[in-house]
Amino acid sequence: MSTSSPNNPPSKSRVPALAAAAAGLVGLAIVFAFFVAPEDADQGISQRIFYFHVPIALTAYACFGWGAWKALQHLRGKGERYDLESYVAVHMGTIFGSLTLLTGSIWAKASWGHWWLWEEDQLVLFLVLFLFYSAYFMLRFSIDEGPRRANISAVYALFGVVLVPVSFLAIRLAENVIHPTVFTREGPQMTGSMFLTFCIAWLAITTLAYALYRVELLGKRLDANLRELREALTA
């Protein structure tokens, strides 16, 4: 097996350190969310869902953006490995996207009394983004493995990223919304300790997503290397 194979994992893995950092930061974020941040006067305890729901949503956007960036690098002919990296990033984005929908739905029920509101542009646009990227997998696995599949998947991942700013800005562009806007032009509409908790939670979720991304990538590369080795040994 050639050492320059696109499927070779990096010689020194940072995965254990990343996983430990993610676990530590998630624990710290939970402590801050429940014991440091004050209770919201308006929403009460259910506002504490915000500290995980919003970072998870932002991480989903980041994963889709990362997937599109890797797709662009693949299309620019930078190498085969970018197709796998784009696929894993979209996979992570879909996992975090489903968590955004689930935690958001629970928070909506606690705050508004409804699991879902179809008239809310922010919710519907996020659902459209999530379904668009869910269809990515149907497209990818309906095509035989090879350069054609990699190119079509990359183009699809690039198209989808257009929905990210639309989904993100929907809450600011819509006129009649009950979905809260916490970050305005005047800055974050919360106390200092709430904002600090939010920042820690955001860092924790981003680190967790990156650790999972590296683990998934490592597994996929090992899998591909083993397949290559099996073919060489049975030839």
């Binding site: 009460g44 869902i49 995980f52 968590l99 629970i106 606690a110």
Partner: peptide, 21 residues
């Protein structure tokens, strides 16, 4: 309280998802 139940459910969903992963 019902608020506490919803918070537990939201955090539980995240925890279970990571655990399944």
């Amino acid at each position: 309280s019902s608020g506490e139940k919803y918070v537990a459910a939201a955090y539980g969903v995240v925890f279970v998802t990571v655990l399944v992963y």
